[in-house]
Design a protein around this nucleic acid. Structure first.
Lengths: 152, 152
DNA sequence: TCAAATAGTTCTAACATCAAAATAATAGCA
DNA sequence: TGCTATTATTTTGATGTTAGAACTATTTGA
């Protein structure tokens, strides 16, 4: 790969994430969900619709400490996006679920991402999509090699 | 694009950035540059080698306020990565430059990214690279449409 | 039965960040 | 020239995010 191409791709890769977050934040401010931050939406996304994961599970997925998630969940409960459900079989566990409002924002966020990926792969056929997926998997493998800490 | 593919690509797109940052942070902790965070390295990267940009220019590039950059630069000056250079033609401007140590980490960071992009595009020919670049540009265009705020 | 282990929460401290006020320097014009 | 408005940066005060350690509640297993 020539130097200029490497530079352009690197530039795109490193700015794109920040741009996604910024656009999502902007969309939230203009929506009916003005009281929630994009990080909180990502927590809602990790908590997800039906599974009722435990606090530690979700924290691991988000790669934050359980203490950090606890305070986040406190906010999300107060703002009526998330509910805590005590496990009856083992009362040490707290299982997390979404409220009606939480499910609403979950679906809105999901739909944004769906549109985003569609725009990303606009006009591409299956073969081209496969190339892109391959590239992203290459990148994951490179990063995985650099830090073999398991993901979940 | 089918649902499963969209889901996988979305998953990759949204986790990859966090993974990059985590690996970079880990590499820093294990290197001779233990006193600098990845955010500070990104500031060093934006300040860059030869241009001597002003504080506002760099802040705009990093998408943070000048005030935030000022405190960041204070730290980076104290840790001997960055130097302030007063403009002689207009003494309101502060031009930013790297010290020897700053240039060292700049090059280390550049080299990491170069390796990363190479791994990303491993085994791909020019045509395939073009597809990838096209996809990333599609994504930027989508985001640009959603938030037309100029980038620099 | 009770000590160790496990899950979650609380508390503290360190940062990052922004917005607004303060400071410093320059430009433009009467 | 001498003000006044503008521009660039820094300082200040407030808020939010986060990790890590100490603490509580519960369960497990010897």
């Amino acid at each position: 790969m020539d130097y200029a191409t490497a530079k352009r791709i690197n530039q795109l890769l490193t700015t794109v994430y920040g741009d996604i977050v910024r656009v999502e934040e902007l969309a939230l401010r203009q929506s009916q969900f003005k009281d929630i931050s994009i990080k909180e939406v990502h927590a809602v996304d990790a908590i997800s619709m039906y599974e009722h994961k435990t606090t530690s599970q979700v924290a691991r997925e988000l790669r934050i400490t359980p203490g950090t998630l606890t305070t986040m969940v406190n906010h999300l409960v107060r703002k009526d996006y998330v509910q805590r459900i005590r496990s009856d079989d083992d009362r040490r566990f707290v299982r997390l679920g979404l409220t009606r409002r939480g499910r609403l924002i979950y679906r809105a966020h999901e739909s944004f991402h769906r549109k985003m990926v569609e725009s990303f792969a606009k006009d591409m056929d299956d073969e081209q999509l496969q190339i892109i997926e391959k590239a992203l998997l290459n990148l994951e493998a490179f990063l995985e090699f650099a830090d073999p800490t398991p993901k979940k």
